[in-house]
Amino acid sequence: MSDLLLILATTILVNNFILVHFLGLCPFMGVSGKLETAMGMGLATTFVLTLASAVSYSVNTWILVPLGIEYLRLIVFILIIAGIVQFTELFVRKTSPLLHQVLGIFLPLITTNCAVLGVALLSIRENTGLLNATVYGFGAALGFTLVLILFSAMRERIDQADVPTPFKGAAVAMVSAGFMSLAFMGFGGIT
């Protein structure tokens, strides 16, 4: 149990995928403009990440390794992730057409979110056991969602602030993302 908690804490804070591994920066910058969108995107990514981590771990352990075709891991994982994302899109469109409209192109783009593939690959390197891999994926997703929500809340405030003209828009977002990353580096001292 403490093992799982440790994995969670590590993936959410210490090894946060966005701010420490610098994976998944595209949705991080792209959908963080509004808090509501960020929450929706966080939820969708959480679903995809957790599922992708669990499924790709199982496929790797019980299909690819026994057959000696680990070298196809990358292709198979991309296939699995694309499938799960498609599934999520169908699900979101059914349950919340509004969220589907708001997320727009970023929903199918979860496929190319390198955080998802990164988590799938890293969880194989770092984990033993399906449960650990699932928790690892879930933790990574929570970390992703946390940072996305924090950052979008911050950007909503920045929009109101009097930013010097050359820094307006993406520039100030990049700078504040850098500061956030610095702040999260501080968690590195915990472990």
Binding site: I63, I69, L72, I75, V76, A82, G83, L90, K94
Partner: peptide, 29 residues
């Protein structure tokens, strides 16, 4: 090994395709 690879990837792709196909008809609003 090469042939196994082709088989496995095709099988996984087929499986995903079937699941998605069913999901699409379940989830069509």
């Amino acid at each position: 090994n090469f042939v196994t690879g082709i088989f496995v990837v095709t099988a996984i792709a087929l499986l995903i395709g079937v699941v998605l196909g069913y999901a699409a008809s379940w989830f069509t609003s």
